[in-house]
Design a protein around this nucleic acid. Structure first.
Lengths: 337, 337
DNA sequence: GTGAAAGCGCTAACAG
DNA sequence: CTGTTAGCGCTTTCAC
């Protein structure tokens, strides 16, 4: 076993010196430094990270917390998160929790006790629960769902949804249905609803409650939502979906019902998941520069962990990386125009 | 800071006793055991895993290695793997690697040096690479793709594919197309192809090369595959797909082309991913008891790690947990029968 | 600039 | 059964 003691002996120095060279924690003479580094290479020495943690009180481990299953969005960002963490010298560990709030809070406590440096929750946590977690633990955490609320993610979502709806209006649509999420208070999901409403208002289009369907946003529900939509007396010519999964599910069900996209109905999604580009026609949607946002978000987390309060995000960066419209083949002019 | 010393003091015992209770490493009187456990609960004590590692020479950490992106199958099993590992006292950590073989091998070496106990590769590794990894490292590893090759996963796949094809034949189909994977040598994917071929042979159906399309099995490719199929002079009445993703992609594209499932063509998939149950009609498919298999596979890995060579898997268990046909709504009798 | 030595929190002999 | 104690490999005072 080659450990720090062995290297010290071989280099003819003390263990303290080896440690100093490896961590650059204190100046060491060039002479000794060379001897240490040579020994490290010669004997393929890797410091024992666990021993290091014991002393440092920092594990350089971040836990990704997932609620039961992994959805498309999460499987998209998980590799990005993990890779970026590694780049920053942190190891991603993964834990699964149930939907139960109490269990989640207990998990936060456990992770703190296990000396995990921080948590990235892959689910939405409401304000009340956030307060409870903060009252019980000190562990720094962020949520991936409302990615960068720190740079007004709500506002971004509202604007992009506005833009998407506006795009449909510009194509000549007036009867624009919407599939939305229920019960997400002031999250980015309700921002998308707001953007949709505002665009319709701006264009003097009356809001038709029957065309606004709110449900949980799983692909399964989009089938029901389409059926509900088709039961209306007045069929829409376009459909705005609050997520790509919803949009793709809707396309699927519409095809089953014999309706063509975009000939019979135009569809626009939100997210830019890979599957949207794998279907035919490609899904027109709002794309989000996830990779960039994730970096921003993690930078914020690591800033808190490392006691660096000054994570500075420039306004130009934010604008540069705003969501943008991807024009696929699922939107066209309405039939009768 | 609540540590083992603190708990020992509060319970009025020695640290050794606390350790023995927590690890069940030696018998402790009921009286003391109770006092220890009470203190543990009362003060929310969690043993410091890093200190434990230092002594045990075991990190109780298993790395899940993912190749760049996460597909549906992987996102399905990832929570199962993680949860089961935790149940067994291991923590899952996650690393992303590129498709490059050399980088993968280096990652295995690095993980060993970091004292990670084992690796679960979420990708297919060919024989040659396996040999190279084993020559350079000692780290135990398994692959999730051919889940339980230890219990003849190949055979299971062949049988199940046979059963699926037989089901179509029993419904009266004779022109049965197949979407398969290319270049997977002797993996479970080729076993599915073999099962399909054997079922056709058994029923004296001539193999039509033009109806057997082999491509990489992403959803994107199923669109091309459907187009290729529709270009044939002779249309099939049924389609066996080597994966659910392929099957769903095909359903989608067929709907776009105006073909109804199962009226115009029957479709059967393989895997049993959740999305298959979210679409309408539900996808008829071969379901696999993943959770059970994952346990088997991990048991094998942990067996190697813990030096337990005798991981015994009973034959009844294997039969009990064989893949089984799930009958959704995507298969019917052929039109003209 | 360098080394000796005291822990970090835990487990496992070794005594009793 | 139970307690005392010596490390696991590393970092970091504290002297020199």
């Amino acid at each position: 076993m080659v450990d720090i003691k062995f290297i010290a002996k071989m280099a003819g120095v003390s263990t303290a010196t080896v440690s100093r060279v490896l961590n650059k924690s204190k100046p060491v003479s060039a002479e000794l430094e060379k001897r240490v580094l040579d020994a490290v290479v010669k004997y393929k020495y890797y410091p024992n990270i666990f021993a290091r943690v014991l002393v440092n009180k920092r594990s350089f481990m971040i836990c990704i917390l997932i609620e039961e299953a992994i959805n498309q969005f999460q499987s998209l960002i998980l590799p990005l998160v993990s890779r970026y963490l590694l780049e920053k010298g942190y190891q991603a560990i993964i834990n699964i929790v149930s939907a139960d709030t109490e269990e989640k809070i207990r998990t936060f406590e456990a992770l703190e006790a296990k000396q995990i440096d921080g948590v990235i929750a892959f689910f939405y946590i409401d304000e009340r629960t956030i307060k409870r977690i903060k009252s019980k633990t000190q562990i720094p955490f962020i949520q991936s769902e409302p990615l960068v609320h720190s740079v007004s993610y709500y506002e971004m979502n509202r604007k992009a949804a506005y833009q998407a709806t506006q795009y449909l209006i510009d194509l000549g649509h007036r009867k624009i249905a919407g599939f939305f999420a229920e019960s997400y208070e002031n999250s980015f999901l309700s921002a998308r609803y707001e953007g949709y409403i505002q665009a319709l208002h701006k264009a003097d289009i009356e809001i038709n409650e029957k065309l606004c369907i709110k449900k949980n946003i799983s692909m399964a529900n989009s089938i029901e939502m389409v059926n509900e939509l088709l039961d209306q007396s007045e069929l829409p010519t376009a459909l705005f979906c609050v997520s790509d999964e919803l949009a793709i599910g809707a396309m699927f069900q519409l095809a089953q019902k014999g309706l063509k996209v975009p000939k019979d109905i135009s569809i626009i999604g939100y997210d830019g998941i890979p599957m949207g580009k794998q279907i035919d026609p490609k899904l027109t949607t709002i794309e989000q520069p996830f990779a960039f946002w994730i970096k921003l978000m993690i930078k914020e987390l690591l800033g808190t962990i490392e006691g660096d309060e000054t994570v500075n995000i420039s306004q130009t960066d934010i604008v540069k990386y705003s969501p943008r419209l991807f024009i696929g083949g699922t939107c066209d002019k309405p039939r009768e125009v």
